[in-house]
Design a protein around this nucleic acid. Structure first.
Length: 569
DNA sequence: GCCGTTTTCGGCCCGACTGTTTTCAGTCG
């Protein structure tokens, strides 16, 4: 039972071991190539494996070293083999062979909106077209005219797809926090102005994914036409892409695609479930239904022609013998088995939070700024707010809150709310002797290398590892080193939107190491601020319960057991 | 190519929309 050989030889050409994202990209491209070659089911198999690899919480090489590649959903004998080849040599010969067969420009054609593998292949085989430029020339030369299935409209459509996107528009996936305000605004506008009964956001936005490719809106209404009329006229809408009896697709002015669907109330739960996804989750659900002699679609759960569920999501899951599954967990990563066993954890919610450990005060912050944040904390019945009164700026210099703001902190303390002073340090970056303060607790941010096991940070009473991002979290190795340091020092680590907080996958690593999470709460921010909802979504995607979130406990957490109770002052 | 609380072989989600069709193919989500 000798372990399989770990990749010891560096990939040729002085390369390095491919990252998970790079490996996923290779398998995606294999899928595209197979698509163009007309393969039927293999492309989806490779894509499935690519999605799984992408969502792993550790490096493929480590999984391979433990001989557990086959445990990755969608990875069987053939793909395991190819992963091993990729890890040890830096390439997959099967991929090389396919790429040799198919002109690279065909993949670009494949990725144009409205064009798929069938069409790309026809251009290649029937016209000898091998790339977007040649396709444009073929259209200009009238070579598509008279081709079966290509009328004037279709040709105009392809011509439009070939034109470069207008500046400022992009179809790329965007960070969820960047999309959050407009998503909520669209939802609010629909509820206020269109004849809808229910309206919800679905899709990867509802699942709280780090990035979203488009927005899915779902409403119930007696008058779809009227809903579409209102929606199309909203100021955010740039262009209506298509409009049918139940569905409208638009592009926002920034280029983001939004799909709006109208369903009947009896099907709302089924539609919400269906359009929330993920794809893998839905596929699993439908095959489970088939095994039970049922059929699931966006209109409900059916036994024969009888709809046995559909009005609510709970109903839909119950009809399949499952408890309701929070959207953030719907990625086919074991949640369906948990739901069958009725063991879906109760994930952390905003009502679990009782404080914020990490509110920065700018040098020009006023007493009014403090008041606004404190008032918000009182409205939310928080037990504490920790203000950072001294930290390190991007220029490496100390940043101190104004005297006015600090004076107001003292006045604001009390009446059920503890107002705390924290100082943020970066051990290894600035000597601690530069800090004269005696704060109630310290916040640590990565400066140099993570301290070795058993060392101290040089400060007593540190509670939070913040701003963990960039270089410090660039690799699985370094992320784990910092999280290991956080654990041995009893620190919570911040999760949420932005490059200086952990995303859901890194949060999952933190959880697996027993490091409590800390969520930014967006105290004092304006309406539609994404900070708290996105942070919550990331923590929930990582499977975190309230007990695993530092600022859901009564006092600022200290030590490896954040739930140990202490009296709030 | 993957997968199995019916299966180690024979399946592989399924409906809306568009454009080109006179009943459907392709794309998308």
């Amino acid at each position: 039972m000798s372990p399989p050989p770990t990749p010891k030889a560096a990939p040729p050409g002085g390369g390095r071991v491919p990252t998970n994202a790079e490996a996923a990209a290779v398998f995606r491209e294999i899928a595209d190539l197979l698509d163009v070659l007309g393969e039927k089911f293999k492309p989806e198999a490779y894509r499935r494996a690519a999605r799984s690899i992408e969502s792993l919480t550790e490096d493929l090489a480590k999984v391979a070293a433990r001989n557990e590649l086959r445990a990755i959903p969608g990875v069987g004998d053939a793909i395991e083999e190819k992963i091993r080849e990729l890890l040890s040599t830096g390439h997959v010969s099967y991929h090389d062979r396919l790429a040799h067969e198919v002109p690279p420009g065909l993949l670009e054609i494949l990725r144009l909106p409205g064009l798929g593998p069938k069409t790309a292949r026809r251009f290649w085989v029937e016209l000898g077209v091998e790339g977007p430029a040649e396709l444009g020339a073929a259209i200009d030369g009238g070579r598509l005219d008279g081709m079966k299935g290509f009328g004037a409209k279709k040709i105009a459509q392809i011509r439009a797809a070939l034109a470069p996107a207008p500046a400022g528009e992009s179809s790329a996936r965007r960070p969820i926090d960047a999309v959050y305000p407009v998503a909520l605004e669209l939802l609010r506008a629909l509820r206020a102005r269109a004849p809808v009964d229910r309206a919800e956001l679905a899709g990867s936005f509802r699942r709280g994914r780090e990035t979203v490719g488009d927005l899915d809106l779902l409403v119930t209404s007696e008058r779809p036409e009227a809903v579409f009329d209102v929606f199309s006229a909203l100021p955010e809408i740039g262009e209506v892409r298509l409009r049918g009896g139940t569905k409208e697709t638009v592009l926002l002015k920034g280029g983001l695609q939004v799909d709006l669907r109208v369903v009947e109330p009896e099907a709302f739960g089924a539609a919400l479930q269906y359009f929330t996804g993920s794809k893998d989750h839905n596929v699993r659900l439908r095959s489970l239904a088939r095994d039970l002699g049922l059929k699931v679609n966006e209109y409900g759960v059916f036994r024969g022609d009888d709809r046995v569920a559909g009005r609510t999501e709970e109903e839909v899951y119950a009809a399949l013998g499952l408890s309701w599954i929070p959207p953030e967990l719907r990625e086919d990563r074991g949640e369906i088995d948990l739901a069958r066993a009725k063991k879906v954890p109760r994930l952390v919610e905003s009502s679990d939070l009782v404080g914020d450990l990490h509110v920065h005060l700018a040098p020009d912050a006023t007493a009014a700024d403090v008041d606004r944040i404190v008032a918000d904390a009182r409205v939310r019945h928080y037990a504490y707010v920790g203000f950072v009164v001294t930290s390190i700026g991007t220029d490496g210099m100390l940043v101190r809150a104004s005297d006015e703001a600090r004076a107001r902190l003292l006045e604001a303390n009390g009446r059920g709310l503890r107002v705390l002073e924290a100082v943020e340090v970066a051990p290894g970056l600035l000597p601690l002797s530069m800090f004269s303060e005696k704060p109630e607790y310290w916040i640590v941010r990565p400066g140099g290398a993570p301290p070795p096991e058993g060392s101290t940070w040089g400060v007593e009473n540190a509670r939070l590892l913040a701003h963990l991002g960039g270089d410090a979290a660039a690799s699985d190795e370094r992320l784990r080193a910092w999280l290991g340091a956080a654990r041995s020092h009893g620190l919570a680590v911040e999760v949420g939107p932005g490059p200086e907080r952990l995303d859901s996958r890194a949060a999952q690593v933190a959880r697996s190491l027993g490091v409590p999470l800390a969520l930014p709460t967006g105290l004092g921010a304006e309406a539609n601020d994404p900070t708290l909802p996105v942070a919550l979504a990331f923590a929930r995607r990582a499977g975190a319960t309230a007990a695993e979130v530092g600022n859901s406990t009564e006092v600022p957490p200290k030590g490896p057991k954040p739930s140990r109770p202490r009296r709030a002052g």
